[in-house]
Design a protein around this nucleic acid. Structure first.
Lengths: 153, 153
DNA sequence: ACGAAATACCACTTCATCCCACTTTTGAGT
DNA sequence: ACTCAAAAGTGGGATGAAGTGGTATTTCGT
C-alpha cells in the first residue's frame, strides 16, 4: 500500500464495457488505490471530450481552493456554475462498479466500448472511438517535446 | 456524513419539471445535504437570470457578511434591495418538493423544463432554455483558464 | 363567506440500487 | 507449460426509492 512514492497514483490503460444500465467497473488496481483514502467515493466531471474521475480526497483539495474565490464576481460564478454542473458524486458498489450519470454518458459519448486511463492523481473515462481519435491527434502534435522539457530542462 | 472535506456542498446537474402548481422536486442528493444543517429550509433569491437557493444556514452566514458592508453606500443599498426584495423562505414538503413563489418563477422564466444545478454551497434553478443559452455564452469566454489557474498556481 | 392559492395526501412510472449467477482472466503451484 | 483456484469483469432480475401528476383539504386575504 505505502510504497515510498506519492500515494494516490493511477497508471495504465484498461478496456472495459459499459453495460445496458450505464454501469462501468473500475479496474481492480484503481479500486485498491481508492479504498485507502476516499473509501470508494469519486467525483466525476467532464473535460476534453472525456470524463475525469477524482478520488474524493483529491477533489476536496480542489474545492478548498475554490472556496477562496470571490463569490459574487461574474466570471467566478459562471466558472463555478459550469464546472460544478457536470461534477457528480459516484460511489463504487459492492462489485467494484459505478453508475455513470446519464448527462455524463452523453457528454463523453459513452456507448459500450470504454477506455479507462490512469493519469497521475485522477483517471479518465473515454469512449473507445473518442480515445482512438484523440490518440491520433496527439501523435501529430509534438507531445514528445513536452517530455523533453520535463526531463531535461 | 462527516467526511473531512467541506460539509455542505451541492454538485451536479439535474433535469426536473415544474408541475402545474409551480412545485419543483429537489434532487434527492441535495435533500440529504440539506437535512443535516438547515433541516429542509431554504432561502431562494434571484440572480443572473436564475434562482439561487441557499440552505438556511448558509444564508445566515451570508447575512453576517452583509452586516459588515458599509451600510449607506449607494451601490451596496441597491444590491441589497434587489437581493432581499426577492428573497423567499421555502420549506421542503414531505415528498421533497418546494413551491417556487410566483414572482420568482417569472423572474427566471420558469415554465416546465427546469435545470437544477449544484454550485458549491448553493444550488441554482434555471429554465432549460435560459440554461442552454448561458452555457453557450460561457463556452465563448475563457472559463478553462480559470481552471488552469486553480490547479497549477 | 368566498375564491384563490398553498398544503397535505395519494397513485403511478421510471430508474437507481441491491443481489446473485455466469464467464473470463489472472496467478500460484506443480 | 498445464491445472486449478481465486479474482475480475459482465449481465440481468427483483426491490425500493425518486420524480411526477392529480385530487382533496386547509389557509389566507378580501
Amino acid at each position: 500500500m505505502v510504497d515510498g512514492g506519492i500515494r494516490v497514483v493511477f497508471r495504465g490503460r484498461y478496456e472495459h464495457t459499459l453495460d445496458s444500465k450505464g454501469r462501468l467497473s473500475i479496474p481492480a488496481r484503481f479500486r485498491e488505490t481508492l479504498s485507502g483514502d476516499s473509501d470508494g467515493r469519486l467525483v466525476i466531471t467532464t473535460f476534453d471530450d472525456c470524463l475525469i474521475a477524482y478520488p474524493y480526497q483529491e477533489w476536496c483539495i480542489l474545492e478548498e481552493r475554490i472556496a477562496a474565490l470571490p463569490e459574487f464576481k461574474r466570471d467566478t460564478r459562471s466558472f463555478l456554475r459550469f464546472f460544478y454542473s457536470s461534477a457528480s458524486d459516484c460511489t463504487i458498489d459492492k462489485l467494484g462498479r459505478i453508475l455513470v450519470p446519464q448527462p455524463l454518458r452523453e457528454y463523453a459519448k459513452l456507448e459500450k466500448e470504454i477506455i479507462v486511463v490512469g493519469v497521475f492523481k485522477q483517471f479518465e473515462i473515454w469512449s473507445k472511438d473518442m480515445w482512438l481519435s484523440a490518440e491520433k491527434e496527439a501523435s501529430k502534435d509534438e507531445t514528445g517535446n513536452m517530455l523533453d522539457r520535463l526531463v531535461f530542462d
